[in-house]
Design a protein around this nucleic acid. Sequence first.
DNA 1: AGCATCATGTAATTTGTTACATGATTCC
DNA 2: GGAATCATGTAACAAATTACATGATGCT
Lengths: 205, 205
Amino acid sequence: MSLKHAVLGLLADSPASGYDLMKLFNASLSNVWPATQSQVYGELTKLTTAGLAEVAAHGPRGRKEYAITDDGLAELRHWLVEVEPTGHPRHDGLLRIFFLGLVTPLEAQTYLLHQAERAARAHAELEHLDETAQWDEDMISVHGRIALEYGLRMSAFQEEWARWAAEEVTGAKARRASELARRRHEPGRPQDESGQERAGRTAGD
Amino acid sequence: MSLKHAVLGLLADSPASGYDLMKLFNASLSNVWPATQSQVYGELTKLTTAGLAEVAAHGPRGRKEYAITDDGLAELRHWLVEVEPTGHPRHDGLLRIFFLGLVTPLEAQTYLLHQAERAARAHAELEHLDETAQWDEDMISVHGRIALEYGLRMSAFQEEWARWAAEEVTGAKARRASELARRRHEPGRPQDESGQERAGRTAGD
DNA sequence: AGCATCATGTAATTTGTTACATGATTCC
DNA sequence: GGAATCATGTAACAAATTACATGATGCT
């Protein structure tokens, strides 16, 4: 449903051809709303039929430059602040977590640490993007920077969580707790030994 | 592609009918991988044809109880740790951010604070779930708890970010900075010292 | 007898992915 | 003249959503 709004949003910034839009999608929206060429061209036709966009000019090689109409702008503004964003989209990374009991704790840990590194790499890339991009004053730059901050915080949070989860699945946390208890000559909590994962939370913090 | 693995994962935990699976989807996976009834029944047929699941027993009212096969388990384990999770899925909430310049700063701020409250509510609900759910020792409980921790951290982060963004779009941060500068009888720098909102959208409005 | 629940399916539509197909213009 | 780039489309397929359709069984 929102490819429509992505296209309208880009057209609101400035008129563009399908070809231009593809470049914009790849340059600024690829992390947030990827789109393929065939989708974009199809959507432009639909928007035109619906009266939300129009062909404002014809150029060389059959170029059609589209512009947003008043109706299109109204629809976009409506969607922007009045339509509730969809909640949590499908998340196959998190789906895997539910089933991690099917592999060995070591494999699970390896997987999670790998994901932590992935998040760290993503974070570094975003930082690089933040430093190198020209943040000028047009709408998409100003607000794109806010979206980028989301990405930065998100990847940092994901890395932290994945490292925490890696400890959880191996029971490392629980083991550290009982290790500590042993050194102090205090009895470790008996449940912890068998059901480490369960106790992890209680013991650690 | 991962509905398949969601179904296999649930079957790996215990044999179930399509009807049972729907309950499991709604109870434990709804936040992570929602599925509709027609999807589940269709998928079960496909999995059976592919030899990844089988009808292990027939019950009353035409009930077919499915079980995962060895091939299914192998496929699931493979997917679990060897297939890279898809990166960032489409995110219409974030897409909106790019276009927030099309509404007034006040509307943008209202929207963002509304989203912050939504995240806070989601967080509270997850906390409630955490407290009330029985976290027993079966795989899905143990690892479901880890997934829930993701949700808790995620919603906290989203709330913080939305509040931060709400300040950004109104230029409140920049205003506070120049206010501060004025009180100190120092000339207010037109740009904020963090450099985050770069000109344009700063104190002006 | 009647109602809630258990139980399975199909059909129509929308959205997204991948691949194919073609042609015009500019620049060197 | 040839290559890069500009430019637009279609077709086949996969996945997800919504709505419809039907019937069996257990319980009170």
